[in-house]
């Protein structure tokens, strides 16, 4: 990144857009942790000093919060890992010769699926599979597949065809070209999809509480049913902070795995 002497300086609008995109990414990378720490600090201070009634104190007990957070994180991580394991290989397959015709169809179906409300999916799966951690995982995984699948396909299709041909022409096998040329070049796009999926999943994981699969959504639900604003707002706040942390981790990962030459 330091030595670009030999490269002609990019000019005009493209450069401006790129530099503004970089500025935004930097702002978010540096700003999100600050924002999260400040808000979380404020909430902790409030929690330590607030005068809570019995119900509030029980709902907002430290160990209860810790347990719900852990459940939320676990739901998010497990579902995202499954999303990766399914969507990336599927995306690769759909860009290989022979299957590429099916790609628009699969993406179309996945697009329609995306229009389905997440809460509806969760309820339908609960009716089918029962109230369970794994039911929630199945619903969330299905929900998170689309962005990764779509970005994997778009990222791989976006790799310059002459580079692929150059690789084959030099005597790399199809698998070698995939691993050493296509996937590394598609990584930035795929990772953007992974971050989108992470954020989606951490959001829909708040619905897990409706089917007894845990997570911070419980605070909102009890806040509503018991008319406790403090519990309600605490739930909203903690989920939002968790989502920001997950998004931030996604951004860090995105920056870290981006091939250096790009």
């Amino acid at each position: 990144m330091t030595d670009t002497a030999a490269q002609p300086a990019p000019t005009g609008r493209a450069a401006r857009l790129r530099s503004s995109a970089n500025r935004e990414q930097l702002l978010l990378l540096a700003g999100i942790p600050v924002l999260v720490l400040v808000v979380l600090g404020g909430w902790v201070a409030w929690r330590l000093t607030a005068d809570l009634d019995d119900i509030e104190a029980r709902q907002l007990a430290w160990d209860a919060i810790g347990r719900l957070t852990w459940q939320h994180v676990r739901l998010t991580v497990v579902a995202t890992v499954l999303v990766l394991l399914i969507a990336v290989p599927l995306g690769i397959m759909l860009t290989r010769r022979g299957f590429s015709r099916a790609a628009p169809l699969v993406v179309g179906v996945a697009n329609i699926g995306q229009a389905a409300p997440a809460i509806g999916l969760v309820v339908l799966f609960a009716i089918w599979l029962g109230f369970d951690f794994w039911t929630a995982i199945v619903a969330f995984t299905l929900y998170g597949i689309l962005p990764v699948l779509r970005n994997t396909i778009v990222g791989l299709q976006g790799v310059d065809a002459t580079l692929v041909e150059a690789g084959r022409g030099m005597g790399m096998s199809a698998a070698e070209v995939l691993w050493r040329i296509e996937l590394p070049l598609a990584v930035p796009v795929i990772m953007a999809g992974v971050r989108t999926a992470l954020v989606l999943v951490v959001g829909v994981a708040s619905f897990a509480t409706f089917i007894d699969a845990g997570g911070l959504g419980a605070l909102i639900q009890t806040g509503i049913t018991l008319f406790r604003t403090s519990v309600l707002v605490s739930g909203g706040l903690l989920i939002a902070l968790l989502a920001l942390v997950v998004d931030w981790l996604g951004r860090v990962l995105e920056t870290a795995v981006r091939p250096k030459g790009l």
């Binding site: 503004s20 935004e24 702002l27 978010l28 700003g31 999100i32 924002l35 954020v199 951490v202 959001g203 829909v204 708040s206 619905f207 959504g217 605070l219 909102i220 806040g223 509503i224 604003t229 309600l232 707002v233 739930g235 909203g236 706040l237 989920i239 939002a240 989502a243 920001l244 997950v246 998004d247």
Partner: peptide
Amino acid sequence: ANAVSAIGLTLPSFALLGFLLP
């Protein structure tokens, strides 16, 4: 504006409803 909209899009809708309800 871009940062705010990026952060806004990460906020889960269920959490936002939690804020708005009171």
